[in-house]
Amino acid sequence: MKAAVIRAPYRFNIEDHPVPQPGPGEVLIRIHAVGICGSDVHGMEADGGQRRQPGLIMGHESAGQIEAVGPNVTDWKAGDRVAIDPQLSCGYCYACERGWKNLCENGVTIGSSRKHLTHGAMREYITVPTRQIYKLPDNVSFDEGATLDFVGNAVHVLNRSNSKLGDTFVIIGTGAIGLIAVQLAKLRGAGKIIAVDTSDSKLALAARFGADRTINPIKEDAIAVIKEETGGYGADIVLEMVGLPATYDTAVRAAKMQGTVMALGFAADQVTIPIQPLLFSEVTIVGCTGFSFEGPTVLNMIADGRIDVKPLITHEFPLDQIESGFEVLLDKKADAIKVIIHP
């Protein structure tokens, strides 16, 4: 089979590898679609590139079709169309026993080398345990199925926010996750949604999805506009989807008294939080990572049209043009949101 193997930052070899064989409780999946995530880009740069090391087959946003099942697999069969949860959990640690598989103490993510090299889906075939797969509804394409991970992350963030009908949302970062968050905030009955990004094209899409006000902080004072739009108080819920010191600073300052900042963005090892507004406004910061039990909800909402992922898929490339996929993502003029690779 063909596999894209990292040899240097943004440089890949397309190599021939043996097709893996499914073990007990596993299935062999023919990958049809795999997305390039922002963490794939940052992972080659942050931490000295430790999250995406040379020798790794990356790719954690994927969907495909079962080709074969391993011993003891009875609930799945060849031909089933599936999306893959990339978070491999052990099932027995403190977190897993409580249903927090995204916090598994022994967990790893496919396509990452953060804990140890765990090959992902930028190849023609992959084997995974059956607990990692979800059946695709008939009207959900492989490309749409490959969005499970980042859509699941957005759903998880909104679930943890405990938002109420009429709450004001500020969403900082309108990449793939942020644009899903705009849709979800609308579905949750937000009183007002304010989107912040430096890309006018992404802000236009945020407005299409339901943002009432968009702010490009290069052109406007984001905090001043947010205060003006919220009667001088700030937002009930602020979603930080970027992960830089400047954007976390904005997030805390944008929250109202006893407001909540949902922290998902992760592009820098450390960020500085403005302590005065945090303390004197009693702002709550809630950490978020990955999704947990939301997989079926995500696919059902895509299937019935409540979540629209199609406009987010802006570019598609075959596996042997994977470097072009990264070039598009790195080119600010390309207006790329989600790049899908077809092995």
Rank of each mutant, 00 (worst) to 15 (best):
I302C: 04
G59L: 00
F169W: 15
R188P: 06
K2H: 05
K135W: 06
T250L: 15
N159Q: 15
M241Q: 06
P217D: 10
M262W: 06
L203D: 04
D149Q: 03
E67S: 02
V140E: 01
D167R: 05
F317Y: 15
Q87P: 00
T168Q: 12
D149K: 04
T127Q: 09
S141N: 12
G43W: 09
C90N: 10
I57C: 02
E124I: 03
I180L: 08
P318N: 12
V170W: 08
H342M: 02
I36E: 00
A255G: 05
I126G: 03
G79M: 10
V283N: 02
T130H: 04
I307T: 03
Y94Q: 10
Y92T: 14
I6A: 00
E294R: 14
A181H: 11
V41G: 00
T174N: 14
A268R: 14
G49M: 03
A8E: 14
M58R: 11
V157R: 07
G25K: 11
L312C: 00
I226M: 05
Y134G: 01
Q321K: 15
F142C: 01
A154P: 05
E97T: 13
A235C: 01
G79T: 14
D320P: 02
T74Q: 13
G189A: 00
E229W: 11
L330P: 06
A4S: 07
Y94L: 08
I31S: 02
D236N: 14
T127I: 11
E327Q: 11
V242M: 02
C96I: 09
D269A: 15
A268K: 14
T214G: 03
I172P: 10
